[in-house]
C-alpha cells in the first residue's frame, strides 16, 4: 500500500474491525470475567464487572484436583510431540535432501493416513488398548497422539528443510566440511527454527485433541480435555468454577498459539498456503 489512506477511512475500518474482533473473542472474554465472579454473581444476569474473587481457581484445585489433568496434558502433549519429532526428523531430512522419484508418493501417502476418520478405528483401538492394559495410561495415549500427528510433523519439517538452499550445502562442501561438520555447523542451525515451529504447533494440536484423549482415559491419564468434558454432566450450576477451570485449561495454549500464527497456516495446510 504505497498510497496514503485517508484517516477517516482508516478510523472507520478500525472501528468495524475492533467490533468484529471483540464479538468473536467475547465468549473467551466472558469466561475469564465469569471466572472472577462468585457463583451467585455468575448466574445473576449479564454483567461485565466481576467482584474479582479468585476463590474459583482455588476451588477447582481443592475440589477437583486440577493439577493432575494439567500435568497429564503437559506430559502428553510435550511427550508425544518430542517422540514424533525424533521419529520424523530423519525421515523428513532424507526426503528433503535426497529425494527420489517416490518421495512425493510417500509424502502423499503419509498425508492420506491423516484422513482416516478416528471413529472408524475406535473399536479396534479400544479393544487393543483394553487387551494390552493401555486404557487410561499415559503411555498408551502418548503413542496414540504421536501417531495421529506424525504425518503433520513430517510434512511441516519437510517443507522447512526443503527451503534450506542447496547452494549453501554445496558451499559448505567446497569449504571442506565433511558430512558431520555439515550437519553440526550448517544444517542444524538452519533447521532449528523450522523444528521449533513444528514443535510449537504440534504441542497445540496434541493439547487440544479431544477424541482419543476423552475416549481412552478415565481418571489416571485424563488430560484437561477429558477433565473439562466431565463437567458436562449436570452436577449443578457451578459456572464460576467451570469458567475458572476452562480459563486455566486454555490459557497456556492460547498464549502459545498467539506466537504461532504463521506456522499454523503452514502446518495445517501442509505447506499449501504460506
Amino acid at each position: 500500500m504505497a498510497r496514503s489512506v485517508t484517516t477517516g477511512r482508516k478510523i472507520t475500518a478500525t472501528i468495524v474491525a475492533w467490533v468484529v474482533a471483540l464479538i468473536i473473542f467475547f465468549p473467551i472474554l466472558y469466561t475469564i470475567i465469569t471466572s472472577l465472579k462468585t457463583e451467585p454473581e455468575a448466574i445473576a444476569g449479564f454483567n461485565l464487572i466481576p467482584s474479582g474473587t479468585f476463590e474459583n481457581y482455588i476451588n477447582v484445585q481443592t475440589q477437583s484436583d486440577y493439577l493432575k489433568p494439567f500435568m497429564n496434558s503437559v506430559i502428553l502433549s510435550v511427550g508425544s510431540t518430542i517422540l514424533a519429532l525424533i521419529i520424523a526428523i530423519p525421515g523428513a531430512w532424507a526426503m528433503a535432501f535426497s529425494p527420489t522419484k517416490r518421495t512425493k508418493d510417500v509424502l502423499m501417502w503419509m498425508l492420506s493416513t491423516k484422513m482416516m476418520p478416528a471413529v472408524a478405528v475406535l473399536v479396534p483401538i479400544y479393544l487393543l488398548f483394553r487387551d494390552f492394559g493401555l486404557l487410561d495410561s499415559r503411555i498408551g495415549l502418548t503413542v496414540m497422539l504421536t501417531l495421529i500427528n506424525l504425518p503433520i510433523v513430517v510434512w511441516m519439517l519437510y517443507t522447512y528443510f526443503r527451503e534450506i538452499p542447496g547452494e549453501i550445502l554445496e558451499a559448505s562442501r567446497m569449504d571442506g566440511a565433511g558430512l558431520w561438520q555439515e550437519i553440526v555447523y550448517v544444517l542444524t542451525p538452519m533447521a532449528v527454527p523450522g523444528i521449533a515451529s513444528t514443535l510449537l504447533l504440534n504441542i497445540i494440536l496434541a493439547w487440544n485433541e479431544s477424541f482419543w484423549s476423552i475416549r481412552l482415559t478415565t481418571t489416571n491419564a485424563a488430560p484437561l480435555t477429558a477433565f473439562i468434558a466431565s463437567f458436562s454432566s449436570p452436577q449443578g450450576l457451578f459456572w464460576a468454577k467451570l469458567s475458572a477451570a476452562s480459563t486455566m485449561a486454555i490459557a497456556p495454549i492460547l498464549i502459545l498459539g498467539w506466537f504461532s500464527q504463521k506456522q499454523l497456516v503452514r502446518g495445517l495446510t501442509f505447506g499449501a498456503v504460506k
Partner: peptide, 12 residues
Amino acid sequence: AMVFQSYALYPH
C-alpha cells in the same frame, strides 16, 4: 574455491 550466484552465505 567457489562463489555462488546466490552467494550461499551461512545466514546464522
